[in-house]
Amino acid sequence: MTLTDIVTRPAEGGAGGAALSLRTLAPAIFLAPAILMLAVYLLYPLVDSFRLSLLDWNGLGSDARFVGLDNWKKLASDTLFWEAAWNNILLAVFSVLVQMPIALVLAVVLDNAGRGSRILKILYFLPLLMSSVALGVLFKYFYDVTFGPLNAILDFVGLGYLAQDWLGDTRLALGAVIAVVCWQYIPFYMVLFMAGLASFPAEISEAAKLDGASETTIFWKMKLPHLKGTIRTAVVLSVIGALRYFDLIYVMTGGGPEGASELMATYMYRNVFSSFQLGYGSTVASGMFIIVILIASVLLRFSKRYETEV
């Protein structure tokens, strides 16, 4: 990297040689801390992860053994990994399908709620302040078969027969976790959509009203198309977030029961820190990286919109 040719200063200074070199080097000096941090804690680990993925190593001794692409071959036929990846995709799909409509409805509701909307928005937003560990533990007990309030509520409203072992049942565990993810993030997308709705020019809906359009028509024909970009951003965010999910699931189910809620990240963690397979765990991490980057770049290319106005 050559950081020369700085134009914020004359090409060659007259004041003095020492001052000049300092100025020519200015961009390098300003960038150095950021680049150093990113090189050490992002770029190097990224590369190192691929290196480790070629090893058979328990991480403790110096008995690391180079096994070439063996780990990658194993990964390709590792049904546990692919099931985990599939769960990530389910998480992504259901996150979008559940969060977007509810967030949109709530945004419209608050848009029409007048004075109460501010306080509602503030209260809705509370879950976003919580750490996923806190939420994971809270909901673990919320879902508890015997002591959890969820089954108690169902019982109370006469739906007691629906009571379940939410996190213990292989068919329900993933869904139960997805519900918590949605519970936490719906307000985020709601605020995003509210900002989008707020940027809809009032004159247009006034003009449409003069043209005889109903509120419903204005929403479907004008406001929703106006939100298209925002919704696209929301979908991209939601999907990328879902592919990298870890904390909440790790705390609530640890990937269980029987891998029913296993995600790529929890599977990686289990391999490294429970089974002490550093090499194979790194292969899983690198595989996850490739999948996330592939899906993200396809999505970003597809949506073409990178930024939104907050």
Partner: peptide, 8 residues
């Protein structure tokens, strides 16, 4: 002044 800083 071609090589003189604005401030100078």
């Amino acid at each position: 002044v071609d090589k003189v800083e604005p401030a100078d």
